[in-house]
Design a protein around this nucleic acid. Sequence first.
DNA 1: GGCTGATATATCAGATATGATATATCTACG
DNA 2: CGTAGATATATCATATCTGATATATCAGCC
Lengths: 105, 105
Amino acid sequence: MMDQAKRERLASKGWKVGTVSDFLELTAEEAIFVEIKLALSQNLKERRQKLMTQTELASKISSSQPRIAKAENGDASVSIELLIRAVLATGATPQEIGQVIAGVG
Amino acid sequence: MMDQAKRERLASKGWKVGTVSDFLELTAEEAIFVEIKLALSQNLKERRQKLMTQTELASKISSSQPRIAKAENGDASVSIELLIRAVLATGATPQEIGQVIAGVG
DNA sequence: GGCTGATATATCAGATATGATATATCTACG
DNA sequence: CGTAGATATATCATATCTGATATATCAGCC
């Protein structure tokens, strides 16, 4: 079970987990979906930090530094689309992305 | 190298691969991104057909039958978001989704 | 042929994610 | 301290994706 601290951390990023009952309304699939996004987000941050600045990565994918920051911080407004585009731009292979997702759950 | 037939197949779904030069403007990462979407699309169709109708799946994820049809046919207007939500709704695990993505490339 | 259920295609108004911009915060170094 | 580079936060107009709806096509069966 997810603890209070984690719920608050997610809620602060815009995820709809404010109250306990709200949280319980998340279906198992929705929960997995969020976890996949968070896993990609973490992976992006790790890979990017070794290679370049947020500004450099942003220009590679015609995005902006603020959006990369949100992507790396698990902001709910960032789509999986952008997360995957960004991870690919760090040189990740489909195999690596697959492993990150498989590591969820 | 992708052949003419495949280019035409993609273009017909809305992908920007109309002319050869347009096609060549796709970066390697963009190409991988499209392939990931197509792999998820195929996987969705296979899994869903064994379990339920498009209409049933649509209601599970508060979508519509036409949108599921587009998702299964690799239409460019369908996001990875929707593809993953749909695959999860067929009961796929993160492990299975990871494998599908890892299988690209 | 006609009927029925499933899937595909077309259109569209509304919702959501987007990049841009401005600015704030942080960190390291002089 | 002050300056510089990197990252975080806020706001916003626009582009893209969305579900809904209507309708077309297809397959199997009578």
